[in-house]
Amino acid sequence: MELNLNPETVCLLITKAHEFHAKEQVTITENPTSPADDWAMQTLADHADDATYQEMVNLINDLDPDQLLELVALMWLGRGDFALEEWQEALSQAADSHTSHTASYLIGTPLVADYWQEGLELHGYTCD
C-alpha cells in the first residue's frame, strides 16, 4: 500500500511534534473531564502563538484532503486502532470523522509523533 502522503512530510511533522510536546508549558490531558469538554481545543488555544505549534498547523492544513485523511489514519494505525490490512477502513473512518479541527485533533493527541512513526514503519518507511 503506497501512501499519497510524502513520508518526508510526516517525518518533519514527527520532529515538530516532538519539539512541541517536549516544551515544559505544554500539557495535554489524556482524558477530558467530561465527554462534552473540547479539551484538546482548549489546551491548544493556549499555545496558538507558539511558533512550532503554528508551523505544524500550517503543514497539516496545507495537505491535500486525501493526504490529511492518510495522516489521521496513519496515527490510528500507529496507535493500534487498525491493522495494516485494515488501511482502507481506517481511511474511510478518517473521512467520516473529518472536521475543520483536524490539525488541533492531531497535535493534541499525546504521543502523536510516536504513532506517526509506528504507522510509517508499518508502511515500510523510516525517518533517518
Rank of each mutant, 00 (worst) to 15 (best):
34 S>T: 09
117 Q>I: 00
56 M>A: 13
43 T>A: 15
110 P>F: 03
52 T>R: 04
13 L>K: 01
63 L>V: 08
36 A>K: 11
116 W>I: 04
23 K>M: 00
82 F>E: 08
102 T>M: 11
33 T>G: 13
81 D>S: 13
20 F>L: 07
58 N>K: 15
56 M>Q: 14
78 G>F: 07
4 N>S: 09
119 G>D: 02
11 C>V: 02
13 L>D: 04
125 Y>C: 01
59 L>R: 09
47 H>W: 12
111 L>P: 00
87 W>D: 03
14 I>W: 00
65 P>G: 05
38 D>K: 11
23 K>R: 10
60 I>C: 04
109 T>L: 08
125 Y>P: 00
37 D>I: 03
3 L>H: 05
54 Q>M: 07
53 Y>A: 07
26 V>W: 08
52 T>D: 07
38 D>V: 08
83 A>K: 15
50 D>S: 06
80 G>V: 07
55 E>A: 15
82 F>C: 06
102 T>H: 04
60 I>P: 01
39 W>D: 10
14 I>E: 11
49 D>L: 11
91 L>N: 06
14 I>N: 04
35 P>Y: 13
61 N>D: 15
61 N>M: 13
36 A>E: 11
124 G>L: 03
81 D>I: 02
107 I>L: 09
24 E>G: 11
13 L>F: 02
22 A>F: 02
45 A>Y: 07
112 V>M: 12
44 L>E: 01
39 W>M: 12
21 H>I: 04
124 G>A: 07
10 V>Y: 03
92 S>I: 02
50 D>E: 05
106 L>C: 08
47 H>Y: 15
107 I>E: 09
71 L>I: 08
50 D>M: 05
64 D>N: 09
78 G>P: 06
109 T>Y: 12
120 L>W: 02
105 Y>T: 15
84 L>Y: 10
59 L>V: 11
9 T>S: 08
98 H>M: 15
127 C>H: 00
81 D>Q: 13
28 I>P: 01
2 E>H: 03
54 Q>Y: 02
87 W>M: 02
128 D>M: 09
119 G>M: 05
114 D>F: 10
46 D>A: 10
81 D>K: 04
65 P>Y: 09
64 D>Y: 10
3 L>I: 05
56 M>H: 09
71 L>Y: 07
31 N>M: 05
85 E>H: 12
65 P>H: 12
69 L>C: 09
57 V>T: 09
32 P>S: 11
73 A>T: 10
48 A>C: 03
120 L>R: 08
64 D>E: 15
64 D>R: 14
21 H>C: 05
25 Q>T: 04
28 I>D: 08
